[in-house]
Design a protein around this nucleic acid. Structure first.
Length: 178
DNA sequence: GAGTGCGTATAAG
DNA sequence: CTTATACGCACTC
C-alpha cells in the first residue's frame, strides 16, 4: 500500500499541512481557517487506515520553494514539484487548467469553463475549483468572479486576497528590477 | 430522482 | 448593499 508522508510548516499566510505519496504532493492545505475540517478532509479522502509518517522537514522544504522567493516568475513551481491530487476525471481536468494561470495574474470562473470547452458548466467548474486539495501549487486563488469580486475560497477569503496581494507585490518588485 | 454548490444575470426591495 | 428566480451541470446520497 501507498503510504503518505505528511508534515506541518509555517507559511507567511499561516500554518500549513503538506502531504505526499510516492508520486508527488497530494495535499496542501492552510490550517488557520478551520483546522479540524482540514484534518477530517484528509481522513475521508485518503482513508483513516492509510499508513502515514510525519516529516516536517519535507513540509518545510515545500513551503520554502513556494513562498521564499524570487522564484515567482514565470512560475517554475509548476514543474519543480510533482503533484498527485485525487479527484474525478472532471476535477482533474479543471485543476489541470488552473496550473496554466501565470503567477500574479487572475482569470474568472467563466474563463476556466470556456477554456475547457464547457461554457455552460461554470457552476460545476466553480465547485470543482472549490474542491482543490492542493492550495497554491494548484492556484485556485487566481480565479475570481466575472464582476471583479473575489469569489469564494476554501481556506478563507482573507487568505485568498493576501495571496493575490503578495503575488502582485512580487511581480511588481521583479518588474522594477530591470 | 432530489438536493447542493468558491457562478452569472437580472429584477426587486 | 441584500434577497429572489432562473439557468446549468457535476456530484453525492
Amino acid at each position: 500500500m501507498d503510504t503518505i508522508v505528511y508534515g506541518f510548516a509555517d507559511s507567511p499566510f499561516g500554518s500549513i499541512i503538506v502531504a505526499r505519496n510516492h508520486e508527488g504532493v497530494c495535499d496542501l492545505q492552510f490550517l488557520g481557517f478551520d483546522r479540524h475540517r482540514v484534518i477530517h478532509e484528509l481522513g475521508t479522502r485518503w482513508g483513516i487506515y492509510t499508513p502515514t509518517t510525519q516529516n516536517d522537514d519535507m513540509a518545510q522544504q515545500v513551503e520554502r520553494l513556494l513562498f521564499e522567493s524570487a522564484l515567482s516568475l514565470p512560475n517554475p513551481i509548476s514543474t519543480a514539484i510533482p503533484l498527485c491530487p485525487k479527484g474525478t476525471a472532471f476535477q482533474l481536468q479543471v485543476w489541470g487548467a488552473l496550473r496554466d494561470i501565470p503567477f500574479g495574474t487572475t482569470v474568472t470562473y467563466q474563463d476556466i469553463a470556456d477554456r475547457l470547452g464547457r461554457p455552460k458548466a461554470v457552476r460545476s467548474v466553480a465547485t470543482a475549483i472549490g474542491e482543490n486539495p492542493i492550495a497554491v501549487l494548484i492556484p485556485c486563488h487566481r480565479v475570481i468572479r466575472k464582476d471583479g469580486t473575489l469569489g469564494g475560497y476554501h481556506w478563507g477569503e482573507n487568505i485568498k486576497q493576501q495571496l493575490l496581494d503578495w503575488e502582485k507585490r512580487e511581480r511588481e518588485a521583479l518588474t522594477e528590477r530591470k
